[in-house]
Design a protein around this nucleic acid. Structure first.
Length: 421
DNA sequence: TCTGGGGTCCTAGGACCC
DNA sequence: TCTGGGGTCCTAGGACCC
């Protein structure tokens, strides 16, 4: 059986850990740059705040004291996520960390003491007790059904955080009420097409023929369809090195000054190459892109990107940084304000299998030693302690007006318990 | 005024090979 | 009228996920 453990309103739950006064209240966590809602407490959902809704549209609710708003604090969420994963690894030897707030576990009835429903509820309670994070645990014969079971946990508090779904008639009953758009693998596009054909529930989709599904959606859709019938087609996956690494941000204000934008891009390059080195890869390609504010239709729009190729695959911040800076200079138009920029590294090979270029006389040994020194210092003395001189001193120019402290990852932000009070 | 960031997989079609 | 058969590789675009 597969279990899906899904953290409820994860970012909001992380913020509430250190703000218990917000329990039972409407809370929203915003995307980077305080742009839009990415996590909402149940109370905030009830206020009508939608996923992805722009902040300015509900900022009045905050003024009226009806909702508390946070900037996203990924350092905190990443740390809490690792704690949850630690608890889950004790529950099963086979865990796939699917996202920051979801993990799949492989589980059999013996391990669970013969009662998987009880096991699911117990794991939910255990996780809450050890980490403070409320989770739903859905157990079913396939990953797709386990996702559905975990959603039922949120819908029905009587399940006490755990739901084991395996009998055919139970599954049929659930699917006949489950919205098709909430099925894992059915996105916005397919749902729009299918609902126009009168299909609205998971059961409507499951009732189509295999040929029809294959024709309309290809093999991926067929897998989803079979998983709904209880036939496992999607296995537990183990972490693979990334095939591309992207680092980009929107800025608080449009940037016009080339040096200014160069400083921001340089920081993106440093972040992306650090991730690249962490997975022991070297990149053959980098794409640099810039864009103006899409929403300001009154201003001139400009999007451009440059693909850079490296004769010798590299993970060197300075090599990639220098090439990116040149690309940026070529693209930037005078007087145009840029709202977003970024870099995508791609076409990787393992770092220890780099094929040298006959005409390349770079000192790769020296480069490797320097990068290792930078990474080691930053890992032990704090991110960004040493950096390339072209990086912006003040960091990425983002709006983060509602940022919570780094409660678990910075000595200066650690909670102080005052016994006198 | 104000609208996120980071990924993966699959498919069709074109170019090329013998 | 009818115009071979069997492949590979690459890319762009579309779909999906959180």
């Amino acid at each position: 059986m597969y279990a899906l453990v899904d953290c409820n309103n994860f970012f909001v739950s992380c913020e509430r850990l250190f703000r218990p006064d917000l329990e039972g209240k409407a809370v929203v966590v915003l995307s980077n740059n305080d742009g839009c809602a990415v996590s909402r407490s149940n109370e905030a959902k009830r206020l009508g705040i939608r996923m992805g809704q722009p902040y300015f549209e509900f900022a009045h609710l905050e003024q009226e004291g009806k909702v508390t708003v946070f900037s996203s604090n990924y350092i905190l969420y990443g740390d809490i996520s690792r704690r949850v994963q630690t608890v889950l690894r004790e529950a099963s030897p086979d865990v796939e960390v699917y996202s920051i707030d979801e993990s799949f576990l492989l589980i059999d009835e013996q391990m669970a003491g013969g009662d998987l429903d009880r096991w699911a509820k117990a794991l939910s309670a255990h996780c809450k007790r050890l980490t403070g994070i409320p989770v739903g645990v859905g157990v079913a014969p396939t990953k797709t059904l386990a996702k559905i079971a975990s959603k039922l946990c949120k819908q029905y508090p009587a399940l006490r955080g755990g739901c084991y779904m395996h009998r055919e008639e139970d599954i049929r009953k659930v699917l006949s009420k489950f919205p098709l758009e909430d099925v894992w693998g059915i996105g916005r596009r397919y749902f729009a097409r299918f609902s126009a054909l009168g299909m609205h529930t998971a059961a409507d989709f499951a009732a189509r023929s295999a040929e029809w599904v294959r024709r309309e959606m290809g093999v991926g859709g067929l897998r989803t369809w079979r998983e709904l019938q209880g036939v496992p087609c999607i296995e537990l996956e183990h972490p693979q090195p990334r095939q591309s690494i992207c680092c980009s941000r929107s800025f608080a204000k449009e940037i016009t000054d080339p040096n200014d934008l160069q400083g921001q891009l340089s920081t993106f390059v440093a972040m992306a190459t650090e991730k690249l080195r962490k997975q022991h890869s070297a990149a053959r390609e980098a794409t640099v892109f810039i864009r103006t504010n899409r929403h300001r239709t009154d201003l001139p729009q400009h999007y451009d990107s440059r693909l850079i190729t490296f004769a010798t695959p590299t993970d060197d911040t300075m090599v990639i940084g220098k090439a990116s800076a040149e690309a940026l200079r070529e693209m930037m138009r005078k007087g145009v304000g840029y709202k977003k920029a970024g870099i995508i590294l791609g076409n990787f090979c393992p770092r220890n299998q780099v094929q040298a270029d006959l005409f390349d006389n770079t000192d790769h040994e020296r480069s490797a030693r320097l990068m290792k020194a930078i990474d080691t210092i930053n890992a032990t003395h704090g991110a960004g302690r040493v950096h390339i001189a072209t990086q912006a001193k003040e960091g990425i120019k983002m709006n983060r007006q509602h940022l919570s402290p780094a409660y678990t990852s910075s000595w200066s932000d650690i909670i102080v318990v005052n016994a006198d009070k």
